[in-house]
């Protein structure tokens, strides 16, 4: 199963690298990659193809893989933490916090944040988004933390309340924005991988990779957590540290993803769900599988986003939403029919 996903993902990478306004065959793509590693092949390719692949499509592909994988793994971990298959990484407030900060920057850039804008340049938006995301997540976490233990029920409720509050504040800022700003923030709030360069990849890769590597290592304790918190404790797992680590890793991964690519919905919810139907609820398979399938889904969504209306781009959130919502509704109705 995991091997199949690997193969599918590698194959899609080659196809996605090749397709677009400038066409590059999979063979040429491999030749260009080999060439950039100093290994010359007989396969002919043009200079234009090389530039497009290495400077535009490759960084976009790499960031897409990392972000998609990270969102899906975070979703799987959150669903395990909440023992609820309908939980979503957005629950701990990271996305709404990032959105609030990003919208604030876009709308107030020329007034309140002009000094910062000069200092940080085009890093201002991602830096603000990640700060906003962390602040709001931290707030939600503190509200659910009763000193010696983290109450998962309170975490859920605090998350909902704080999300609503951040949503209202975002709404207010949207209300006072002008048309240009509105367009920018609309695009941002639906997510996009357009214009991603190696600088964004380098900025985000360490955090996304940490999330992608460490969360799957928590498979055993996450399995035990599904039995119940007390049961996991009796099996010798440090439950409180575990909960904090999961929240922190999810905040890190999703925060970075949102900061670099805007809000891309549904991957965190739908991918783990789909995989549970395929491989069962065991986190030893679910977590790495989610990483691969999340990466694959975002890759395909991004491919559709940049080719459907080429040379214009459709926001990626629209694509994942169109693919994700009907599936989500189907899950809801299926649960309703099954009675729980």
């Amino acid at each position: 199963m995991l091997l199949g996903l690997w193969l599918l993902l590698s194959l899609s990478c080659l196809l996605v690298l090749g397709n677009g306004v400038v066409n590059i065959s999979p063979g040429q793509a491999l030749a260009i990659l080999a060439d950039s590693l100093g290994w010359h092949t007989a396969w002919p390719f043009s200079h234009e193809q090389q530039t497009v692949l290495l400077a535009i499509r490759a960084p976009r592909l790499v960031l897409g893989l990392l972000v998609g994988g990270s969102l899906a793994v975070s979703g799987a971990a959150m669903q395990g933490l909440f023992r609820n298959p309908l939980a979503d990484p957005a629950l701990i407030g990271i996305s709404s916090g990032a959105a609030l900060a990003a919208v604030a920057v876009i709308v107030l850039q020329n007034t309140l944040f002009s000094g910062l804008a000069v200092l940080l340049g085009h890093y201002l938006l991602p830096v603000a988004a990640i700060c906003g995301g962390f602040t709001v997540s931290w707030l939600v976490y503190r509200l659910a933390d009763s000193g010696d233990r983290l109450d998962i029920g309170s975490l859920l409720l605090a998350g909902i309340a704080i999300n609503a509050l951040a949503g209202s504040a975002t709404g207010l800022l949207v209300y006072i924005s002008n048309d240009d700003q509105l367009r920018t923030l609309t695009f941002w709030s639906m997510g996009s991988l357009s214009g991603v360069g190696w600088d964004s990849v380098l900025l985000g890769a360490p955090f996304l990779a940490l999330n992608l590597i460490v969360l799957p290592l928590l498979a055993y304790p996450l399995n035990a957590l599904l039995l119940g918190e007390a049961e996991a404790g009796h099996l010798g797992f440090p439950v409180e540290r575990l909960k904090t680590a999961i929240v922190a890793l999810v905040a890190l991964g999703v925060g970075t993803a949102v900061a670099l690519t805007g809000i891309i919905g549904f991957i965190g919810l739908v991918v783990p769900h789909l995989l549970r139907l395929l491989v069962g609820p065991d986190h030893r398979w679910l977590l790495p599988g989610s990483a691969l399938l999340g990466a694959l889904l975002l890759l395909c969504s991004d491919y559709l986003a940049r080719t459907l209306a080429a040379p214009a781009e459709v926001p990626i959130g629209i694509i994942t939403g169109v693919l994700g919502s009907p599936f989500f509704l189907w899950l809801l109705f299926r649960q309703k029919i099954m009675g729980h």
Partner: peptide, 16 residues
């Protein structure tokens, strides 16, 4: 390894 605890009921809701 030296103490097993059986709870009254378990919350497991996933399809293991």
């Amino acid at each position: 390894k030296m103490r097993g605890v059986l709870p009254q009921s378990s919350a497991l809701a996933f399809r293991f």
